[in-house]
Design a binder for these strands. Structure first.
Lengths: 149, 149
DNA sequence: CTAATTTCTCAAGTTCACTTTAGATCAAGA
DNA sequence: TCTTGATCTAAAGTGAACTTGAGAAATTAG
């Protein structure tokens, strides 16, 4: 199986390479994450760099970024080429900050959880386990899920 | 401002104490997380333990649990009393495992991110940064957000 | 060439965690 | 008492991230 006759990868190829559903790949396109070319028949044709872009998406998602954030990073990446080292360094610096913050939040939570059990107070409100001054509690409709921290 | 004339807290009191919206508190009730009593006029009356229950919900959410998971834990807690030390220990043991797993996932991610930048390969696919064998990629419709890890 | 597979578009459905709206009722302060 | 303000219910809307379905056109295997 050569990488598809002429031109690049089909959407199915890309799905196979990335493990994503075809529908998801199309969906990402509507959100400005991919910009495939079209062949004579109107079918999407992807380049090798698009595998990387989708890997990037998946990693960023598992780090807690939403698609719109990710699309924002994507704008800074070259559309059809592999990212330069500078591109990548800039983005990954940002990533590292977010990851570190997230880890710190969880460790904090775990440590305070230990303290609570140790002292047996069980009073979550006074136990400082729950810090209302967190960056939560701001946002409109929609899921709040883990934007926090 | 006494804790409300007779009986317990109103839904507004509870909202003030927890920082949650009134609508959210009602919503949680429909999901079996709270079971308030009603006064003569049909208004909800909450007890002091419900503040704790909601704190619990907020903490668990910030750890990545969904409401249905949380409701599951809630079933094991006494409905209108404060949880016993045994109750809490059992639950928090579970929590700790999840938190640790989450932290490990993120640290792993961060370390591999470093490696990728160090070697300059940028090839996320071959860089092992992205491990497709993760527990992701399974699920029907709905948000995938951070269930991973 | 034909049949089977893939892809196309567009609209609508799904889950989660809520919020918003509307109209009615209850409670509390002046 | 009257008039705000809080609460009530029920239904519909929101945003994120996709999936599913329908019908049509393109591609590929045999």
């Amino acid at each position: 199986m050569p990488p598809s006759p002429s031109g690049g990868l089909t959407i199915g190829d890309l799905a196979d390479r990335t493990g994503l559903a075809v529908s998801a790949i199309r969906f990402y396109e509507t959100h400005g994450i991919l910009h495939p070319l079209r062949n004579a028949g109107g079918h999407r044709r992807y380049g090798r760099a698009d595998i990387r872009r989708l890997s990037f998406v998946m990693i960023a998602q598992s780090m807690g970024f939403g698609l719109s954030d990710i699309a924002g990073y994507m704008v800074d990446l070259p559309a059809h080429r592999a990212p330069s080292k500078a591109d990548w360094t800039r983005i990954s610096d940002d990533f590292r900050k977010k990851i570190d913050a997230r880890i710190a939040h969880l460790q904090n939570l775990r440590d305070r959880l230990d303290g609570c059990i140790g002292c047996g107070c069980l009073s979550l409100e006074t136990c400082a386990l729950h810090n209302p001054a967190d960056e939560a509690a701001k946002g409109g409709a929609g899921p709040r899920a883990l934007r926090t921290g």
